[in-house]
């Protein structure tokens, strides 16, 4: 899941990027409203963590503009101003959730997962497909009665595929999910992680579509979730 972080404090921004990566999120982080708007323009984000007070304007203004364009991007507002009426202003201003500083990294990740899955129309945190029950909160999956754990990068790819099962995701789209990791994306990274996923989930769980990319195999009849 690729997240846009707009936060002007560089220490916090860095902490968010690294901390959320532990929870399986890939993030792009910017410091100002202008940069944030440019990043949103480019698109490709599943959610946004937005600081209320930015050096060049209010996060609420950015949010208002985003919503006026009809975007339903899940937004979690992050701010030092967390008195009740300020929370109300944030939520009414279009934020899906509101977290006061300082916050707990795990809570932030959990709230992000919650608003993301609600945006996908799911209430249950777990996602099931073809015999795999995936728990994004724990970055674990259960398949054929066996618990599998995934590395953050493996999880990012699996998560991307399972969001829209059956749809083909190109290599570049998957790379985008991995973009932002500090070690960069090497050309074979996607292949390497898909290979590891196949060894954990079974060789036929992920299909390769020649020249197009990858997708999850359709479920076998008895294992429909």
């Amino acid at each position: 899941m690729r997240i846009l972080i707009i936060e002007d404090d560089d220490v916090l921004r860095d902490g968010l990027v690294v901390g959320l990566s532990f929870a399986g999120f890939t993030s792009e982080a910017v410091a100002t409203r202008v940069e944030g708007e440019a990043a949103l323009e480019a698109g490709g984000f599943s959610g946004m963590v937005l600081d209320l007070m930015l050096p060049d304007g209010s996060g609420l203004d950015l949010l208002a503009r985003l919503r006026s364009r009809g975007s339903t991007l899940p937004v979690l507002m992050l701010t030092a101003r967390d008195r009740p009426h300020e929370r109300v202003a944030g939520l009414d201003g279009g934020a899906d959730d509101y977290l006061g500083k300082p916050f707990d990294l795990e809570e932030l990740a959990a709230r992000l997962r919650a608003i993301l899955r609600r945006a996908e129309g799911r209430a249950d945190g777990r996602i099931a497909w073809n015999g795999l029950v995936l728990d994004p909160a724990k970055m674990k999956g259960e398949i054929a009665g066996e618990v599998q754990t995934f590395s953050p990068k493996e999880f990012a790819i699996l998560r991307a595929l399972i969001e829209r099962p059956g749809a083909v995701l190109g290599k570049s789209a998957l790379e985008e999910r991995l973009y932002g990791w500090e070690d960069g994306v090497e050309s074979n990274t996607v292949e390497v992680h898909v290979h590891r996923l196949r060894s954990k989930l079974g060789a036929s769980f992920i299909e390769t579509v020649r020249g197009a990319g990858y997708r999850l195999a359709p479920p076998t009849a008895k294992e429909t979730a």
Binding site: V11, L12, D14, G15, L16, A80, K101, P102, F103, L105
Partner: peptide, 23 residues
Amino acid sequence: AAHELKTPLSGLKTQAQVAAMSP
């Protein structure tokens, strides 16, 4: 002042958690 201190505190907390969780 209280608000402004919350942001660096938040950075501190987040980085401390990152340090604790980092593999």
